[in-house]
Design a protein around this nucleic acid. Structure first.
Lengths: 220, 220
DNA sequence: CGGCGTCTCCCCCGCTCGGGGGAACTGGTC
DNA sequence: GACCAGTTCCCCCGAGCGGGGGAGACGCCG
């Protein structure tokens, strides 16, 4: 039931940090660590992780080659979350084009890291809605870091969806939100469904949690 | 639909602060202000608030007398939230004995203030579960500030209820919580119901919001 | 002009959720 | 021993929630 994560990074400090962050979550289990891409494939076969958190820049075999190798040689491969230090790392886009499922900056806050792992674990209908490769292509076509920003911002909510999420985060029911926004309850349900989809949330409670964890709404 | 609040305090600064905090909430409306207890009764008749946030120490007519007068003379009186500066203010207990529904420290964080108003507005099955007068009596009997602490802590959750709330705040369903705690789903439902009751929450989403707003769980 | 995204509303359906009861067992306390 | 709080489990039931699908109206933009 818990999400099984394999950490791949040449820096022990990063691995330790990721482990600390992820193991603090009840639904996430770190099942292994590797220091370079070459060690990944046998380890994946052995521990069968759901998600591989993979650094791009590594000795021996980098994250791109490791990603390609994983997808080519492993049956039912895990989701691959590319971890990087730099926002404009062209290796990231190569990795995404190689088949990675998402990417994450090392300087992300713990909550974002956790969130990214959960989303990736649930499939690609999440923070990176099936358009990762397209965005990477856009970037390659000269889109600059617009694609990077789009990826970072991830689940871009429309204005109305933002309104609805804010009211959800105040504890209002669909009917109450409808009354407040002066629209029908069916309309609210549509927006709520859109929000749930974009945030990768199963229900409104998880959406509100994400709203808090991401800083979309602030306590106090 | 919004909660109508009347502010009663002799200090304009406090009234302004309370107004700013409360008006920032979509579901709360400040419908009037009074600077002393004598002005409260006609104002209550006029604006029909749901909640009166009442200072205890005021010139002319203090909060205790104002509370008594309100409950004696107004039909269908509003809920009364006693606002005070000092934790061990014996006037508070007199006010509670006079019929106030709850009390709040002025140095409370904005979220706590908002929370208190919402809870009070929903009736006394809330932060102060019908035992306010009993606790006040305990205090009078020499319980020291134990009663004060009990009031402050308000909805004291049992250990198991805390476990359940923590897992609710991670977005787990009743079935998932049951699996994690290795109990039946009916058991979890019992705990969830208890948590909702104690927190004055209508559903798990509101309970999770309270958990965040109160600092019971921390983002990040 | 024709798409596309956004906002609006509608249908049906299944399920979880939450309220209302109650009941048994434990471990303390009086 | 009686009592109470806490934990565990059970029943029934209604309502809200969320998924699935569709559809019309508007404005923007290539």
């Amino acid at each position: 039931m818990p999400i099984r994560v394999l950490l791949v990074d040449d820096e022990p400090l990063v691995r330790t940090g990721l482990r600390a962050v992820l193991e603090a979550q009840p639904d996430i289990e770190v099942v292994g660590e590797a220091a370079d891409g070459a060690a990944v494939i046998p380890l994946v076969r052995q521990v069968r992780p759901d998600v591989v958190a993979m650094d791009v820049r590594m000795p021996l075999l980098d994250g791109i080659e490791a990603t390609r190798a994983l997808l080519r040689t492993v049956a039912d491969p895990p989701k691959i979350l590319v971890v990087t230090t730099f926002e404009n790392d062209e290796y990231v886009y190569e990795a995404l084009r190689a088949g990675a499922d998402g990417f994450l900056l090392k300087r992300a806050r713990p909550a974002e890291i956790v969130h990214a792992v959960r989303l990736i674990a649930e499939g690609e209908s999440l923070l990176f809605p099936a358009s990762v490769r397209q965005l990477a292509a856009e970037y390659a076509d000269g889109g600059g870091n617009r694609a990077a920003r789009a990826l970072l911002e991830g689940a871009r909510l429309t204005e109305r969806e933002g309104d609805v999420l804010r009211l959800m985060a105040r504890g209002l029911s669909n009917a109450e939100i409808a009354a407040r926004l002066v629209v029908g309850t069916e309309t609210v349900k549509s927006h709520v469904s859109a929000v749930l989809g974009k945030l990768g949330a199963r229900d409104r409670t998880q959406a509100v949690i994400t709203a808090y964890e991401s800083g979309f709404v602030a306590p106090g």
